[in-house]
Design a protein around this nucleic acid. Structure first.
Lengths: 224, 224
DNA sequence: AATTTATGAATTGTATACAGTATGCAGATA
DNA sequence: TATCTGCATACTGTATACAATTCATAAATT
């Protein structure tokens, strides 16, 4: 008979490295535009180039890095264009996922409320983003369309670097938690349609301040 | 001064290999469920394991392969679930891309018509799918949201294996080309909304026969 | 002085070697 | 006969070695 899958999935060095490098990109230790030196980075991480390269290839496919053959990997610049494009798609997909998920169970509602409270009290922008992402994934946790969820997760990864700027200002955090409350209140009224459109609003209000910040940032760079 | 990018982008062996293996999966030379033997496949392709592994990792991320750490890569089974999930998303995204693209230029309309004619005359299912995919990408070619286009491309790749079954029956080809005509006629009337909803219909009618085929297929397998 | 050309170092792409893990089979045990 | 144990083999994961290309610097040419 077939033995059950081993539960302890000791993952590969490649996977670990991918996580590590992704963190370095997200929190700015590898700044936008930076060229990756495979040899340096591999010794810094204490691994050989082989698993590092596998990780870099993965990150390139995720969109965090850009690969130019025979030249190297570069940390992708923050781009107003890319951000706007992603933030055009999420207000379409997230509400659809919620619609497919249906009204959340009482337990899920409780978790959503608890997460939102945590966001209100958190100070560190990184922690806030983690919690906000978790909140959104919890909201659509019941969605049976795993492909859709995976895609939303991809986009969450990809917009993290931008959102840090957003969550540095407490005003924006307050807006986000208020939006979450509006969504939850619609759900409590068992009004799925209203919740979906509140979610759409949530995504759209998150967008504006970041666009503004990016524009200022690009202007500064252009002026230099 | 900086030298212009070399135009001839001699791509890597890894990329070539990824193309080759993807083809082998799509056309069935590597059947669903098959385990990939890296050594055998690398000698068969005349390359070493290193670029092959990079290609396999890429295909795994695309969803064509499944990676089980320390055991290997497997060609993913055709799954009714996955297919239905993807075909729930495309009727949302494709029309949105068309909406963003706006009405096509006369030149693009001519190309769309020419492609649709080619589909009507083609016999080989593989060629038909190529043309159909090309038609859909041409339709939304003007869409400025490149992230959206990339995602649609990903899904096209991922559904190819399923669609072969669809296009083997000429009746379905006729339905597809008729749908395309409906879309084009709406566009000629400059009625973008109608075109978008015709596109939605197009995606949905493509879905049913494949679901039916997959169900029959799974029943057969379960019965064995 | 500005531009081009040559040369060597640094860096990426690929192949190979090695180590650790899974897999299958033969023999042992009940 | 059926199940378990130990061993040999095959395969994956990682490291290292080598080849090919890019990049930077300096000499040479105009």
């Amino acid at each position: 008979m077939q033995i059950a899958q081993t539960l302890i999935s000791r993952d590969n060095i490649s996977d670990h490295v991918a996580l590590a490098v992704r963190d370095m990109i997200v929190d700015g230790r590898l700044p936008p535009g930076e060229r990756i030196n495979e040899v340096h980075l591999s010794v810094q991480l204490g691994v050989s180039r082989t698993p590092l390269r596998e990780a870099l290839a993965k990150l390139a496919q995720e969109g965090a890095l850009r690969s130019i053959p025979r030249i190297g990997y570069f940390v992708r610049e923050l781009s107003l264009e890319e951000f706007e494009q992603i933030y055009t798609i999420r207000p379409i997909l997230d509400p659809e996922a919620l619609r497919l998920a249906g009204l959340p169970s009482p337990e899920r509602m409780a978790r959503l409320k608890a997460l939102n409270d945590k966001i209100e009290n958190a100070r560190d922008p990184n922690a806030i983003i983690d919690l906000d992402d978790e909140w959104h994934l919890e909201l659509i946790g019941e969605c049976p369309n795993k492909v859709l969820i995976d895609f939303i997760k991809q986009m969450i990864q990809r917009t993290r670097r931008y959102e840090i700027a957003l969550m540095r200002e407490r005003k924006n955090v307050a807006v986000a938690t208020a939006n979450h409350k509006a969504i939850m209140s619609a759900l409590r009224r068992r009004d799925l349609d209203a919740a979906c459109s509140a979610l759409r609003t949530n995504m759209q209000t998150g967008r504006e301040p970041i666009v503004k910040w990016l524009k200022a940032r690009e202007a500064k760079k252009g002026g230099k």
